[in-house]
Amino acid sequence: MQFAVPTEFRDLLPFVSACVTILLGLIALFAPRLTLRALRLQPRETRPEAAGEPRSVIAGFWLGVGIVTLFFFDQMFIQLCLGAGWLMSAFGRFVSILSDDGVTLVNWLVLLFMLALAFAALAPALGFVT
C-alpha cells in the first residue's frame, strides 16, 4: 500500500481531521491520567485500573478510525465513518450541556471543536466541498 498526501482541498479536510484524531488518540494512549484530567475525571486510588479506560476505549477507537482515515482519506465511506463518529460525539456533548447542567464555556468550546472535526470529515463526502 502506498501512502499518499492530499493535493486538493477536498482531500485535505478529512486528512487533517484524521491527523487530529490520531494525535488525540496518542495523547489518550500515552498520557491516560492527563486525558482523564482534561475530561474532568479522576481515577480513585483504590481503582488504578481506571487509567486503562482512556487507553482502550478512547485511544483505541480514535487511533483505529484515525489511522484508517489517514490511509484512505479519499474514500467517501471512510470519511462518513470518521465524520459520523465526531458528529455523534458532538451530539452527546450537546445532550450533556442540555441535561447535565453542563452549560460551561469549556463544554461549548469542545462541542465546536467536535463539530469542526465532523465537518472536516463529512464536507467532502456530502458534496459541500468540491
Rank of each mutant, 00 (worst) to 15 (best):
F73Y: 14
M1T: 11
I22Q: 04
G102Q: 08
E53D: 14
V129K: 06
I27D: 09
I27F: 14
L24V: 14
F119N: 00
M1S: 14
A38E: 11
A84T: 15
L126F: 10
C81R: 03
M88P: 00
M114T: 03
A28N: 09
A59P: 03
M88R: 07
R44E: 09
L122R: 01
F3I: 15
L105P: 00
D101P: 02
F128S: 02
R10Q: 14
R40F: 06
G127P: 03
F9P: 06
L82W: 00
A28G: 08
T46S: 15
V20L: 12
P54E: 07
L26S: 06
V68T: 14
I67G: 01
G102R: 05
L109W: 04
V57N: 10
V95L: 10
M88W: 09
V16P: 04
F15W: 13
F3K: 07
F128N: 02
N107R: 10
R33P: 00
G52Y: 06
F91L: 15
T21Y: 03
S96A: 14
L82E: 03
T7K: 15
M1P: 10
L12I: 06
P14F: 00
T69W: 01
A118V: 05
V110K: 02
F119H: 07
A38M: 15
G85S: 13
A18D: 04
M88A: 12
F128T: 02
Q42W: 05
G102V: 04
C81E: 09
T69P: 02
